[in-house]
């Protein structure tokens, strides 16, 4: 189970499973369990296999999902955690003993340099995602997505490739926000029912909106 879990994380996939077995163990915790505490340098780094972990500092700061790692920043920076890590759902993952991990990486600059390359790429992707989320409203993102489903310029009937909950996640918004975005597009002649079928009266108008020329 540990080897499979490590493979889900680009960072920890760099650790040879046979070595990691010496300092990694499976971890299960119920929802609401405080997994790591704010203000402490964590004894373990956690890899999320199933479930979600909330980062809480006064208020909610963010939520991490499968494949994400919690506590690495504090352990490697020797700085206390800036948040509590709380299981938002039942947690299933791997706990890597901090001292064991540090001891293993001592002298393994090849792995550390590979980690730097991976994190740098991930940060670049996050920056692009943030820029895109801020530039385009939810309705613009939905319009852009719908426009990709048809080569037509005027009217078209398209079929959503997934249910609306998944579509919301794919477009980076809550399901309720997706419903509001569909409602807003109704004024542009977009009609969506309960199913996957969407009628578009003017695809070119959708493309203009997706390009940000309307607000």
């Amino acid at each position: 189970m540990i080897a499979e879990a490590l493979e889900t994380s680009p960072l920890f996939a760099l650790l040879p499973a046979t070595d990691a077995a010496g300092f990694a163990r499976p971890l299960h915790a119920p929802a609401q369990a405080v997994l790591l505490r704010r203000g402490e340098i964590p004894a373990s780094v956690l890899l999320i296999r199933h479930g979600a972990v909330d980062l809480v500092a006064g208020g909610p700061m963010g939520r991490l999902g499968p494949g994400e790692v919690v506590g690495l920043d504090a352990l490697f920076s020797a700085e206390p955690l800036a948040f509590d890590a709380v299981a938002a759902t039942p947690f299933e993952g791997v706990a890597l003993d901090g001292q064991g991990l540090l001891a293993f990486l001592d002298g393994r600059s090849d792995i550390l340099h590979a980690m730097i390359a991976i994190l740098s790429g991930q940060l670049r992707d996050q920056i692009r995602q943030i820029a895109d989320l801020k530039l385009h409203s939810c309705a613009e993102r939905l319009a852009g997505f719908l426009a990709t489903l048809t080569p037509a310029q005027r009217d078209a009937v398209v079929t959503l490739p997934c249910d609306k909950q998944r579509l919301a996640r794919r477009l980076g918004m809550e399901p309720a926000t997706l419903s509001r975005a569909f409602a807003r597009l109704r004024a542009l002649g977009v009609h969506a029912g309960r199913g996957a079928r969407v009628v578009i009266e003017d695809v070119a108008a959708l493309r203009r909106l997706a390009g940000g020329s309307e607000s």
Partner: peptide, 17 residues
């Protein structure tokens, strides 16, 4: 190298948030 991984991981958490 260790500190750099830590700093980048911290940036990643902040951007994820």
């Amino acid at each position: 190298a260790l500190r750099t991984v830590g700093a980048l991981a911290r940036c990643r958490m902040a951007l994820a948030a």
